[in-house]
Amino acid sequence: MATEGTVLQLPQRLPWYSVARLRHLTNLIFKEYPVVWLTILFLVLIFPALTADFTAPHDPLKQQLSKRLTPPVWDQTGDKPGTWSNILGTDKQGRDILSRIMHGSRISLMVSLSALAIGGTIGTTLGLVSGYFGRWVDHLIMRVVDTFLALPLILMALVIVAVFGPSFYTAIGVISVLLWSRYTRQIRAEVLSIKALDFVARARVAGCSNLRIIVKHVFPNVVNTLIVLATLQVGTVILLEATLSFLGAGIPRPNPAWGVMVADGRDHIASAWWIAVMPGLAIMFVVLSMNMMGDWLRDKLDPKLRQV
């Protein structure tokens, strides 16, 4: 995924419909310009997550059976035309889809940030310890990592939720427990190469304790990797949470999690497609822009990771 320096030079004196212009435009949108994914992230994830309480047009849980199964506003053909009051339509119980999506953003953001914080902290700490100390500590930790990587992800999550019961906190716990190992593996590999560098040996000669070397000398050198990895993981976490919620093992009803909304719309796909399609589009846009942001950060911060 190398980015060429010439990409951003606007081809001069060419008509707007020429292939070069079009290619330049697609490059602008998909390769270099962070504007696109920043806008999507802000509009679909961050803004609604922060302000849904007073910007959402309706209460996400309020049922209005008289308005049930209203199509989106642009669909005026059926016997029940869309209205501006419910721009993206309503579901089987007459709940406003737009409001539910907006409140769902908060759930997605909360789950992914919490899972990121917990899983990332555990994973990074173990990765630092494993890579720095080596020997049996490394062997032990890496076998545990292998074990967690060998677990069938969704299946394990289903089992854990079956034992503890579905809730917001179970979802966060399950996702963190299942994803920390990826941080450990990546950070450890990084630490192994940093450990061999001169400045670590000199710090040791200067009498630094192991803890000090890890915190002050090794960790700052893996921060870039960590940021890139964490960004790319946000998409994975959102997808995983949505999948679990879809299967009924994530966020319990009636909370408007995106996965739950898609599951609600599944049985009505023939008559009311918007119930399932709209929240799915929200998931897609958020994960897509998160992945684009991760790719972009990787190119800027840590070109070594490109092969991953």
């Binding site: 998909f30 998409g235 997808l239 949505a242 999948t243 879809f246 299967l247 996965g259 898609v262 719309g265 599944r266 796909i269 023939a270 497609w273 399932a276 399609v277 799915g280 998931i283 897609m284 994960v287 897509l288 992945n291 684009m292």
Partner: peptide
């Protein structure tokens, strides 16, 4: 490649059915 990593598979399945 980007879409493949971003589309939730359960949603894709429902849209394909639709």
């Amino acid at each position: 490649a980007l879409l493949g990593q971003s589309l939730p598979s359960f949603w894709l399945a429902i849209v394909l059915i639709w």
